[in-house]
Design a protein around this nucleic acid. Sequence first.
DNA 1: ACCCCGATCGTA
DNA 2: ACGATCGGGGTT
Length: 171
Amino acid sequence: MRRLDLSFFNRPTLLVAQELLGKEIFFKAQKAIITETEAYIGEDDPACHAAKGKTKRTAIMYGRAGFSYVYLIYGMYHCLNFVTEDEGFPAAVLIRAVQMKGVPKQKLNGPGKLCRFLGITTEHNGIDLLASDDFYVSDTGLCLPFTATPRIGISAGQEKEWRFLAQFSIE
DNA sequence: ACCCCGATCGTA
DNA sequence: ACGATCGGGGTT
């Protein structure tokens, strides 16, 4: 299984979000198959954190593709994203659900829940997934069918169908 | 310094 | 339907 590299992440975000379905996250010796993603694309996307421009928090999204972007939401949950596209263009893919061998789906079917289960916090923001030995993404060879829907939990930008759900059940 | 709000989730 | 809980970002 080959690690995903710059040629995977440095592409149009919708394509990356779709193709991340079925890929495997390695985090501190844990393995999780990605089954749901959302795309957040550029300053013109009102739901994207970069809609307010470049700030200390969003700077990572303006950087090179293949870095982690982890932020705290509602004071108690974390959300994991992967930075996409060319340096200077802010975009990322939110990981909304994963599946792990022997773990009930219900523990992993939300962006906050999967981060809590895996132990991902803001401490893991800005990690280079192309270089780290305990945080990266691999190709499993899986190519999953998926459906597209509006993104969840946002107030603006609901007309875009930028949420992608894979049809998949581990084992 | 103050205020508002949020890419959520569990409980009611 | 609602509250927990706190940092980011804008405003005073």
